[in-house]
Simulated assay, not measured.
Amino acid sequence: MTDTATQICELLHEASATHHRVFRIVDGDDPDWASWYAEWLIDLSELPELLGTTPVRSELVYILVALDKEYSGGAQKAAWEDFYAHRLIDHFVASK
């Protein structure tokens, strides 16, 4: 895994842990989880710096939901954070 992918993977793991703490009263259940993640990743993490661009919030929400469906729909061997990190890099960095 590249250094950037590793760092994004770690941010996603941190976002997950933080989200679960924030939504602890409902055991992490949040139907609009992707909006929360997008806001946290854009405003409270180093994701924009790592990607070299600040994603538009709605685009990041869309990508996170699409990644969730893709990851959940297949037999993935990688941890979800690894899977998402590489796809985020592909989408936001490779498409520049």
Score class of each variant (00 low, 15 high):
I42K: 03
D43R: 10
S58F: 13
L47I: 02
L47E: 00
Y37D: 09
G28R: 02
G52V: 11
W40S: 15
P31F: 06
D43S: 06
V56I: 11
T53Q: 09
E39L: 08
D32G: 04
T53M: 05
L51S: 15
A38I: 00
R57A: 10
D32S: 09
W33M: 10
W36C: 07
S45M: 05
D30F: 09
S58R: 03
A34G: 06
E59K: 11
E39D: 05
P31Q: 10
D32M: 08
A34E: 06
T53W: 01
A34R: 01
S58A: 10
V61F: 01
D29R: 03
L47M: 08
I42A: 13
D29M: 05
I42E: 09
D27Y: 03
D30A: 11
D29T: 07
V61T: 12
P48V: 11
L41D: 00
L51E: 10
S35D: 11
D27T: 11
T54R: 14
D30C: 09
L60N: 02
E46D: 06
L41K: 00
S35G: 03
W40H: 06
R57V: 04
G28F: 02
L60E: 02
G52D: 03
T53E: 08
P48W: 01
D29I: 04
L51H: 09
P31G: 09
A34P: 12
Y62D: 09
E59F: 03
E46K: 07
L47G: 00
E49C: 11
E49N: 11
L47K: 00
V26P: 00
D27Q: 12
I42F: 11
G52W: 14
A38E: 01
E46W: 04
A34H: 09
D29L: 13
D29C: 15
V26G: 03
Y62R: 12
L51D: 08
E46H: 13
L41I: 05
S35L: 04
T54Y: 06
P48F: 02
V26N: 08
L50Y: 00
T54S: 11
